[in-house]
Amino acid sequence: MSAITIRNLNVWFGAGAERSDAVKDVSFDVAEGESFGLVGESGSGKSTILRAIEGIAPNWSGHVSIAGEVLGKRRSRQFYRNVQMVFQDPYASLHPRQTVDRVLSEVMGLHGFTDIDSRIGRLLDDVGLGSGFRFRYPHQLSGGQRQRVAIARALAPEPRILLLDEPTSALDVSVQAEILNLLADLRAEHNLTYVMVSHDLGVVGHLCERIAVMKSAEIVEVLGVGEMRKLEANDPYTRHLLESSIHSVR
């Protein structure tokens, strides 16, 4: 059974003459336990797809079903338990006046957990922070630590699917390596399904098994990570993207 099915998804901003299409006629499936990557340049609409799934993008049409639930205008509480998101900028995704403890306990309260205290401890251990960080404010944390808190928050309701919106692009490479390892571990441990957006083909290639390449709001090609590594792309744009990211590393 596929965890995510998307058919003919369109997302747009504005209306009438002002309308601009951010995502045009996009379709893909993500299997249970799979890690799926969306790559493309800025403005290609890759993040917008995640936002449409989570219901943050206002105007969308098409068929989206998550774990068998077909999404309508409103998302159910069950949906939010199943699907969580990690944002790009760890400096903007945590409330500046709330401690780690406050963030996590509020989230757990929302999902109706009762053994909040022990759960917070376990969650912080899971993301490699430990209980020393429990009562800190975001400004007392480094970028990587903040992103771990954001991951802990996303894991709090025990979701099956994580949407990752460039989770490491604001971090240093060594911290990026830590977070990518953490994400790989968590996926193996909790059998999570990932949809990851990134502009960095190295990052996506490391974490994902299948990759969709986006250009000007459309998916131009979906290819496996093996083909990507051998630079076997059919689409000229994909080839160009692969070549330029290989060159920047060599």
Binding site: L180, V203, G205, H206, R229, V249
Partner: peptide, 20 residues
């Protein structure tokens, strides 16, 4: 060396990234 090795490399995949 840590900086060099912690970058995920498309052509030379590793199971785990080296952590500094």
């Amino acid at each position: 060396l840590g900086l060099l090795n912690s970058v995920p490399d498309l052509e030379h995949p590793r199971e785990r990234l080296e952590v500094l």
